[in-house]
Nucleic acid binder design. Sequence first.
DNA 1: CAACATAGTTTCATTATGCAACCACTGGAG
DNA 2: CTCCAGTGGTTGCATAATGAAACTATGTTG
Lengths: 156, 156
Amino acid sequence: MVKRTSFEGDGCPIARSLEVIGDWWSLIIIRDAMLGLRRFGEFQSKLGVAKNILSARLRSMVDHGILETAPASDGSAYQDYLLTPKGRGLFPILVALRQWSEEFDDAPEEIDTIMIDRAKGRPVKKLELHAEDGRLLSLADITLKPRPAPRRRSAG
Amino acid sequence: MVKRTSFEGDGCPIARSLEVIGDWWSLIIIRDAMLGLRRFGEFQSKLGVAKNILSARLRSMVDHGILETAPASDGSAYQDYLLTPKGRGLFPILVALRQWSEEFDDAPEEIDTIMIDRAKGRPVKKLELHAEDGRLLSLADITLKPRPAPRRRSAG
DNA sequence: CAACATAGTTTCATTATGCAACCACTGGAG
DNA sequence: CTCCAGTGGTTGCATAATGAAACTATGTTG
């Protein structure tokens, strides 16, 4: 086979996530879904993505439980694409992508929006990774270990 | 043009990040660089990626300041690919991808590693987004606003 | 029902990716 | 220095993913 390498079945959770949302458009679509877009045409006109690509991505994300279809909120017979809890769970990934650009982009003056805390109207802090005891952790502070075998209730 | 849509010049920082590391292999390579891989052949044999693809990705990431080349640490005349601070800044993105899989993966029993706090050997907490005043924030608590014009020192 | 909008699918061209073969350079043995 | 295996690529070709536009089907408006 000469098809694109699949990360499916890989035990690495990063690879497993990228297998689902690691393509060119999915996260962009999710970003706009989080901004409130829900109709096929809204995504299509805002993003300028080809309709066949949009159709394929929406279907894939519905299949993966990231989006779900629902009767259109405007009462028409068309459908909305809404984020599921699994889809909303992508929020930290989008925040991390945003903050990386904010911190390291070569042309930060081209960034046109900032993310603010709705209640106070102030910029948010950087995402933080903490230990169970609350210590702030960075790359050097973590390591990987094999996943412990899950406890079995019965089947002994 | 029929080439792949570029997000270059887009003002959205998420799109800007994806423009750089949103392809099929970059984040996987970065993941392994964070695990300590540094030589072309190490990436090639561990990932099984085609050498032309690996070559193109490494070059792109060096061009973007995510990786840098250095004389090989083993004294040979070959070179190492090392993470720059900008590259290490991708760490939260990888953590977010990992945690999304850990929380929502349809087959979590296939995940083979967990990330632990090196000091205590305990799993880390979920990434958290906080307001300036420390409140924990979720998707519903944030909004976007136009980036304020940067202050000018002179040129008046 | 006519006319138009929405939400796709199909077709075809182009780009990206994958694999294999090839090439250049390194480092060691003789 | 020559021979040769290993490293680090590049090149060429096949296939898969993507993009633009045309086409289809259904919904909506009047």
